[in-house]
């Protein structure tokens, strides 16, 4: 595998790793957003909480999520390494410097660092607590005939071994599910205006990072073409730098203002 190391440690190869991991993380952003859209459902968190269970138990997803965490870390630290190496290429700076490049393209590293801090906060707020802390449980009773769901919070001290306790009462025509109430945790967290602001600001960082990052990845991979490159550029801006960050930012705002 000598050639592979050689390729990937060359200046172009290093960037290819950033591009590939970056694009993977872009797909994660899409999936994560679609999943989390369930926060907007007015079902007392039923869909969201059961989705959370599915995401943390289904083996394939679990593997993918750990790969995802690893790639986030890799993307971050590889990026820091490249930035460090690039700084070495200019030991003495200019007294006056007017940049003719976009501010986004020049700020990738700092935006990335903001995002890294954000991820630590975000993961410790929800992921860590969901996995390792005691969370309140919630019971959903679904009337199988009408589809109506009744939500009942469990007692403060309630706990269970399985992530999802599910039982059907055929006679009564109901299905009962007990799961951790992450929805409540989210709703509670987003009552904190500082956290809401931090999340919204972080989404600006996502936007700015992807205005340049998405199209840059294609350029690095050598995928450019007079016909299609404008399309990729627009995709990067409209989908990844505008739509997706707005979608994410809507969540804390939704809970803060509407719940």
């Amino acid at each position: 595998m000598g050639w592979l190391t050689k390729t990937l440690t060359s200046s172009i190869g290093k960037k290819v790793l950033m591009a590939l991991t970056g694009l993977f993380l872009c797909t994660f952003l899409v999936v994560h957003l679609i999943g989390n859209l369930q926060l907007f459902k007015s079902d007392g968190g039923y869909a969201f909480n059961t989705y959370a269970v599915f995401m943390t138990t289904f083996p394939v997803i679990k593997v993918v999520s750990y790969v995802n965490y690893a790639l986030i870390l890799f993307h971050a630290f590889w990026g820091i390494y490249i930035t460090y190496k690039n700084r070495q290429a200019r030991p003495v700076g200019y007294a006056v410097n007017k940049n003719s490049s976009s501010i986004f393209s020049r700020s990738m590293a700092i935006l990335g660092l903001i995002l890294l801090v954000y991820l630590v906060v975000h993961m410790s707020d929800f992921w860590y607590r969901y996995h390792y802390e005691h969370l309140p449980y919630v019971k959903y009773t679904e009337n199988l005939t009408t589809g109506d769901i009744t939500t009942t919070a469990m007692d403060e001290g309630y706990t269970q071994v399985v992530k999802k306790f599910e039982i059907s009462d055929v006679a009564a025509g109901t299905k009962t599910i007990i799961v951790k109430d992450l929805y409540k945790v989210v709703g509670y967290a987003f009552q904190n205006i500082l956290l809401v602001l931090f999340y919204v600001l972080a989404m600006f960082a996502v936007s700015f990072h992807l205005i340049h990052g998405f199209q840059s990845a294609f350029q690095t991979l050598g995928l450019n073409h007079p016909k299609y490159s404008p399309l990729i550029k627009n995709l990067g801006i409209w989908i990844f730098a505008i739509l997706i960050p707005i979608g994410y930012a809507a969540m804390p705002l939704y809970f803060y203002f509407l719940k």
């Binding site: 200046s11 172009i12 290093k14 490049s101 690095t220």
Partner: peptide, 18 residues
Amino acid sequence: MVAQMDAEGFGACTNTGA
């Protein structure tokens, strides 16, 4: 040429377009 470019100590391209 890329190998030589790297050996000379130039930085990597981050597509800023400057």
